[in-house]
Amino acid sequence: MKRTVPLLITGIVGTVLIVSVLIPPAQSLGEDFSLFFDIIAVFAFFLGGGNLFRIHLKKVFHRKEDYGFSIVTLVGFLVTLTIGLFKIGNPEGISGSITAAGSGLQTIFVSIITPLSSTMYALLAFYVASASYRAFRAKNREATILLVSAFVILLGRTPLGMMLTGWIPEQFSIFQIPNLAVWIMNSANLAGQRSILIGVGLGVVAMSLRLILGMDRTYLGSDK
């Protein structure tokens, strides 16, 4: 029963959603099911918050390794929750919008979360540099092609590319580095991306078929 009901729901909902694409009067069914999902998601947020609180409280209580981080998490969680629930600092009071300018929650978001997120994002530049260093070492033929392509694109996106090859006559302009970079991106790269996308499309259909027909039940646990 525990497995039959989810399988039935998956099969029925999956079939209805496919049918709704083909039958115009059933189009709104897809939106209705999305609404059900949103309703479930609201309850799941309580589960998420509860889980976060319980796990970190346990770490602090048992004085586990690095429990100091858990204290920071708990304090941050409770302070934000309290400010958000009671709309502390909200210029329009308890009946005002939770995201009103100058409200406590908005201040936390703008002054703490946004700068911290930006800091993490900024780290990406350094990770890209270190990953590029590894990827562009000409160890074999494929890596060498990758290196040359990357070099052409890097040059093509800077004025240096035009400076180096701007003298090439118009009838051979494809060999100017900026034009070569455009060709690599629009022809070679795009073709590769589309081939992956076609594969993804077929994979999605196959996966959906397995799930709707109940052939792949591994997400429910045992196959038996």
């Binding site: 889980n51 976060l52 979360i113 911290l116 997120s117 800091t119 993490m120």
Partner: peptide
């Protein structure tokens, strides 16, 4: 366990 649904906080 649940961590957060903020992209870069999750990464951290």
């Amino acid at each position: 366990f649940f961590v957060t649904n903020q992209q870069f906080a999750y990464v951290g």
